[in-house]
Design a protein around this nucleic acid. Structure first.
Length: 437
RNA sequence: GGCCCUAUCGUCUAACGGUUAGGACAGCGCCUUCUCAAGGCGUAAAUCCGGGUUCGAUUCCCGGUAGGGUCACCA
């Protein structure tokens, strides 16, 4: 047992699903522990029996597993009542706590801490010395009863019992620190090192919350975000390596992480940057895995077409859920249904309807004899003609005939995706539409 | 409101008294191109204000201002 071993902890209360803010706190504790060959403890602070739920605990566990955060030890405070009781009894015997008769509140009797009413000065590793007068804290309550301890007591006892050396927590913990130091001193616990991280903010600069549509880690996962993107994004919220490197794997983060470089001011969560990270990781992902994921989202589209559509989709999304958005906006309709045409749109710029028809006929002929095994081959079959007649004059009507949209992938790609039969059919449809005019 | 924390481009940030204040995302422009997307190149954009200290302040100190946090028999 090494007395100098770094031990960090993260202590969520299972009263909700794991959100990004807490996940970020876990990440920093994890990085710091790992880079110092230390330990990290996960402790469920479930002393509030009314609000704590097993399903949230499960959600938190599943989330950290997915993120790749491995904890060395896991505890549940509700199973440690005897330990807290021991300290409570000792404190009462010592006179640092006492049983108090109450005239207000839910109980007629609670246990209060005997506040010495001093100024507490503590050092935050990054913020320097912070001094707070504890007088207005009064004799705060540390337990509902001897068997029913409250947060401040359990935190201090556990951090002591578990040998926690470094507390890395949110800035909102600053206000709690004096109370906890008071209790440490009462039970003779050493003072750990404190680092308070800036909050994650929404666009309105307020603490990120459900109101901002803040999603749980698993919900991000459901949308198709990669854990690498989320970890990378989270790491850069309130920290940076001081170099121009933006992309970091977990191992690189462990090496590069520097607690002293943690920012002091709050950081706004930037969705665009997350999407950028995710697109990056999408591009470096195993192709088979990506193909399967995209394929799943493309149900409802003919399987052969969907198969050939995959690379086109991959290039156009940042995250898999973008495909759902494309579907809803109708952007994918022409992959499963022949489009309707607005005759005027078939024509490229100021060229005429007759000309469009002529080029479509020629394109039909060339494509009938073309090798459809790749978009490149299709392009080759028609490229010379298009170059000669003007690419816009030929390619725009062709592309429009295939998609019925002003904006779409290029006609070679579309032809390849559709295959010869559908390609020819749609050209015929467009031609007959022109003829009906 | 009391107490505490914070303050560089729109956003995330670099700078540890001397820089043309750098990078990334987003934006804009150009190139590529039949359109869109992707890609390449480029461009615009910041030291909250006022006092000090100093030969010299983004940087150190003080005061404002603004933002955030916290004031439970929650954690």
């Amino acid at each position: 047992m090494n007395n100098n071993q770094v031990i960090t902890r993260v202590a969520p209360s299972p009263t909700g699903n794991l959100n990004l803010g807490t996940a970020r706190m876990m990440l920093f504790n994890y990085l710091y522990a790992k880079q110092n060959n230390g330990k990290i403890i996960l402790r469920f602070e479930d002393t509030d029996k009314a609000r704590s739920r097993k399903e949230f605990e499960d959600n938190i566990k599943e989330s950290v597993d997915w993120l790749g955060l491995k904890f060395d030890e896991i505890y549940r405070q509700s199973e440690r009542t005897e330990i807290y009781k021991k300290y409570l009894e000792k404190m009462i015997a010592d006179g640092t706590a006492y049983i108090s008769k109450e005239t207000e509140g839910k109980r007629s009797e609670v246990i209060r801490f005997k506040n010495p009413n001093t100024k507490i000065a503590f050092n935050d590793t990054n913020r320097g010395d912070i001094t707070i007068d504890t007088t207005d804290l009064e004799d705060f309550i540390i337990a509902r009863s001897i068997d029913d301890p409250l947060y401040h007591l359990t935190v201090v006892v556990d951090d002591f019992e578990m040998g926690v050396t470094h507390i890395i927590r949110g800035e909102d913990g600053i206000a709690n620190t004096p109370r906890q130091i008071l209790i440490q001193e009462a039970i003779g616990a050493p003072r750990p090192l404190y680092t308070h991280m800036p909050m994650v903010l929404g666009n309105d600069k307020k603490k990120l919350s459900k109101r901002h549509g803040a999603k749980s880690v698993l919900e991000w996962k459901e949308e198709g975000y990669f854990k690498e993107a989320i970890i990378n994004q989270l790491a850069f919220l309130g920290w940076n390596p001081g170099t121009d490197q933006e992309i970091f794997s977990m191992d690189e983060l462990i090496k590069a992480f520097d607690l002293s470089k943690i920012q002091l001011g709050g950081a706004v969560f930037n969705m665009d940057k997350l999407n950028w990270y995710n697109k990056h990781y999408l591009s470096t992902r195993n192709e088979g895995e990506v193909a399967n994921a995209i394929m799943d989202k493309l149900d409802g589209i003919n399987e052969d077409i969907a198969e050939r559509l995959i690379p086109t989709i991959k290039e156009r999304i940042s995250v898999y859920s973008d495909i759902d958005i494309m579907k809803e906006s109708g952007e994918l309709d022409y992959y499963s249904n022949d489009p309707d045409y607005n005759v005027n749109s078939i024509v490229w710029k100021d060229s005429g309807l007759g000309e469009a028809k002529e080029h479509l006929n020629k394109a039909r002929e060339l494509l009938s004899n073309a090798d459809f095994s790749s978009a490149e081959n299709i392009k080759n079959s028609i490229w010379d003609y298009a170059s000669e007649k003007g690419k816009g004059n030929v390619l725009w009507p062709l592309r429009y005939a295939l998609s019925g949209k002003d904006k779409s992938p290029d006609p070679f790609e579309l032809s390849y995706i559709f295959g010869k039969e559908i390609t020819i059919k749609r050209i015929d449809n467009a031609i007959s539409k022109i003829e009906k005019e």
